[in-house]
Design a protein around this nucleic acid. Sequence first.
DNA 1: TAGATTGTTAATCGATTAACAATC
DNA 2: TAGATTGTTAATCGATTAACAATC
Lengths: 211, 211
Amino acid sequence: MIAALPQGTLQRLPQYLIMLKTELREGRTGVTAEDIGAVVQVSPSQVRHDLSVCGLEQEPSEAMEVQALIRLIEHAMGYDDVVTAVIVGAGQLGKALLSYQNYSDYGVEVVAAFDTDESLAGQEVGGKPILPVKRMTALCRRMKVHIGIITVPAAYAQEACDRLLEGGIQAIWNFAPVHLRVPEDVIVRNEIIAVSLGELSRALQEKRRND
Amino acid sequence: MIAALPQGTLQRLPQYLIMLKTELREGRTGVTAEDIGAVVQVSPSQVRHDLSVCGLEQEPSEAMEVQALIRLIEHAMGYDDVVTAVIVGAGQLGKALLSYQNYSDYGVEVVAAFDTDESLAGQEVGGKPILPVKRMTALCRRMKVHIGIITVPAAYAQEACDRLLEGGIQAIWNFAPVHLRVPEDVIVRNEIIAVSLGELSRALQEKRRND
DNA sequence: TAGATTGTTAATCGATTAACAATC
DNA sequence: TAGATTGTTAATCGATTAACAATC
């Protein structure tokens, strides 16, 4: 599956995946579009439409097979094509991301974290090393790392980004609250905590108003 | 500002805010819709439209005042109405979220984190305490906490959620990869790492194909 | 005045939903 | 067969973009 998925679909597929894996753990082997929709809070039409975009081939009238759906979605999301990543910044957030154990489920392999604080060098978190940042560019080049994950403070994010670009990185997952300047062929995804917090507090306020 | 903001607007406003605060730090006091759009990668029309939804009142022909825009967006996002939160699960991710220092910028106040591991109790991270989870429900009730942030492993997430609900929590920010069962008046926002990773690795694959 | 830029309305575009023929 | 459920097409809905009068 390689066609460009619509934005909405791209955000819902991982949710379906979580639901399907839960079903599988609980021993269910077949689900309907309605089952999925009920859990993920999406209309059955939407579910069928999304799966159809992924290229689902399914006998009508029969419930869909959980295993097959999982593989289908993993393929559509590109999880079966492994990309490598490094983390810049080994603070609390950097360590949390370093210690995460399920990257391989999503086709990502984190190689190491880097920090300017050399006293951290040599430490391991979740089996992954923390290294001095001055070794980062060379290591990225040598290992042809694809993704750089930036968890340094805002003031240092552009510099971290520039180093990653020198290392030949092609995509950046940025947790610092700044907009990075990059060549236009580099992909940037900003992870903005304020978006989530804002949605929650707005929803709370709306709710309060209706009580 | 209290009208329900469209989904897209809600996601872009925090990006504008980041851009505006950067401009302010660098000493600029006026920006145009075009300036904002160039940094955030959005059309000037879109920017004007979004700000108009927030209720912007502005003299045409003059650049907009950065300070005033910041206040406008903060108000529209509901950041000037403080809500309280607790974190369940003081692992790496829980600690990272506990140590985050800028919640107040987004109208959130994190009170404490809780963990079943009592040996963590008494520790502080970023000036906030870690407490035994058995004290959580009562504390939530007493302090009328609004938001529960779940960072426990998937297998314990539903239980953590149930405890929070007992404590009278009204909204949940869930980092565990499961769909929680909650009464329908409780707001749940699932934070799914796979969405971000998937978007990045898909974009990489598309790019590779075009080279 | 001419030029720049606004806020808002109307046109376009894309995404979601509903409808339905096809299948077991 | 009747009932359930599919994949896909057409209708609806909402969000983005373009156009433009208003303003300094």
